[in-house]
């Protein structure tokens, strides 16, 4: 089976490599395309709608952390102003 193309959106190099490692351990093979990476979660939050839109063409896996928030669903609600595309995989590392 040909590799599944996927885009990554992360805060830093460490998050990128964590995602790459997770994808590597999956039984399916992935072809990681462009990685959207700028320091901090501010960039990811600002571009969340763009990534959600991009998911219409290709799966997007975004990794962020809770920062000062108390729970992940609150963050998801705050970051997305519309319905999440099923191929936009927004993952939050929790404490």
């Amino acid at each position: 089976m040909s590799p599944v193309p996927i885009h990554l959106a992360v805060e830093d190099d460490l998050s990128e490599w964590v995602l790459r490692r997770i994808l590597h351990d999956r039984p399916v093979s992935y072809a990681v395309g462009p990685v959207f990476k700028q320091r901090g979660f501010g960039y990811l939050k600002k571009q969340c709608s763009a990534f959600n839109n991009l998911a219409r063409a290709c799966p997007v896996l975004l990794l962020t952390d809770l920062d000062s928030r108390s729970c992940a669903p609150e963050l998801l609600e705050d970051w997305l102003d519309g319905p999440r595309h099923p191929d936009f995989l927004l993952r939050v590392a929790v404490r």
């Binding site: 590799p3 885009h7 462009p34 990685v35 571009q47 063409a57």
Partner: peptide, 29 residues
Amino acid sequence: ESIRLLLQGGMTIAEAVLPMTAPDSVSQL
């Protein structure tokens, strides 16, 4: 298509295009 979708989502050309020009990282796996 991916760049068009990112631009529609509010990105600038720089934000949408420059990550696309990074070398393929697949081999790094």
